[in-house]
Write a protein that binds this DNA or RNA. Structure first.
Lengths: 245, 245
DNA sequence: CGCTGCGTTGAGCGCAGTCAACGAGCGTGG
DNA sequence: CCACGCTCGTTGACTGCGCTCAACGCAGCG
């Protein structure tokens, strides 16, 4: 983590250093990386960049949670991605040298590390391994998107909400007795935007999941530990069991 | 298109040469590229690679139309992408060195150019510009996927089908008088998989679009030219115009 | 001739979108 | 302190869309 020049790698102390896209930056270029590097603390709800704004560099989430959202005409919006610590955001507008198509906003108090655009570009050109790592992050985003397209085409709204809550429980939940419990980092509208339904429908879905093992009260969510990977996935049973679903 | 060694660039005669991911390959490496390069003719319905198979290289569509589809347990499938001439496919499994997550099948008689994996990897390592172009193709795929996620969340099935038919008309249609006409390269099931509905629902959607300016008979589709970018996008009007929608 | 794949049509019904109203929580300002 | 406005979330009523199962027509083919 410390090159021949004695300058430490800016990401060297980070828990995600081994997988950092900047990890391959070599001794001679570390000073440039250090110069272009900056940390930023984001309060809850603060934006890192706005939709339509110019790219300022490559961003890496260090702490907290960032929502990537696109706003459409008509006031609606879609939450395209949740970015957790270790994940890189803003790489599309960086690599293609174009405006941001999404807005990045902190859902929790967060810290984001930035490598400023001009030097980031030089570093990428000087070190193809960095580009390879960025490409790998692109592919992860393709995989995520494909999974979501498939889920939208094959799963019901209730199933998708249940799956989303499981994912969130995995990331934010804590074991408590034989329950998994968490404080939701998302508003109802954010949840609705994530599964692609209006807030009223989401509210009803939450109500229905409440009868299927989920305990949802405001932003507090809990499930019996063994329910994991089961609830919300049952077939409709419309004719054999009128009380179900 | 002809290097100092006298070996012509394998893509040199291709209409998409300027945008080819291999265009940046330099003189010294062109012989390797030529060695790894092969063309393949695909009959209608023939597969280029199967879901779960090993990657054999980087594929570029030269002629025809390729469908990228994933099959799920239960016999259903989702058509994730249509790849037109000039587009690159199979790059995820190539770059990440993993199995194909999708199946590639020709929807029309097609020609596909392949650069075999081992040499393709060497070429990418030797020439970062090639990697940059591959990354650009990744980003295009991210953009396409995001648009589709947004469409699934904001547009009705009918709107999405209308938009899909417009896109297909743009790619395959011919002006005929003041109509746009085409022969659909997709079966009903493929259309259904593309917009994420069962075939029965697609059939009904087709029926409804038939009352809104589309003339759809089997695989023959036509619209009045001025209908473009209009039909299927009207608001429901459920209360003011009972005959609509 | 029967088989199979493809596409359509019908019946039934739950789910979801829309409009609307309401209540809780909260910060502001008089 | 209360009134007010605001956001957020929920609930109700209504309508129609879309999923499911089922049957049928049809073409190609052995």
């Amino acid at each position: 983590m410390r090159g021949d020049t004695g300058i430490p790698h800016p990401c060297g102390a980070c828990a995600f250093y081994p997988d950092s896209v900047w990890q391959p930056v070599e001794n001679g270029s570390i000073s440039m990386l250090a110069r272009a590097f900056s940390r930023k603390e984001l309060a809850n709800g603060q934006t890192l960049f706005d939709q339509g704004s110019e790219n300022r560099g490559v961003f890496c989430v260090s702490r907290g949670l960032i929502a990537l959202r696109t706003h459409h005409e008509g006031g609606t919006s879609t939450l395209l991605r949740l970015a957790y610590p270790g994940e890189v955001i803003g790489f599309r507008s960086f690599l293609e040298d174009r405006l941001h198509l999404t807005e990045a906003r902190a859902l929790l108090p967060s810290r984001v590390c930035t490598v400023a655009r001009r030097d980031a570009r030089r570093l990428v050109q000087a070190n193809p391994t960095v580009l390879a790592r960025l490409a790998s992050r692109c592919i992860s985003e393709i995989d995520r998107s494909h999974e979501r397209i498939i889920a939208a085409a094959t799963a019901s709204n209730k199933q998708r909400l249940a799956a989303l809550l499981f994912d969130l429980l995995e990331a934010h939940g804590e074991r408590e007795g034989n329950h998994l419990r968490m404080h939701l980092p998302l508003s109802r509208k954010d949840l609705a935007d994530l599964i692609g339904v209006p807030p009223e429908t989401l509210s009803r879905l939450v109500g229905r999941l409440g009868k299927e093992g989920f305990a949802i009260d405001g932003r507090n969510v809990a499930i019996p530990a063994r329910t994991a990977a089961k609830a919300g996935t049952e077939p409709p049973l419309t004719k054999t069991c009128p009380a179900a679903s």
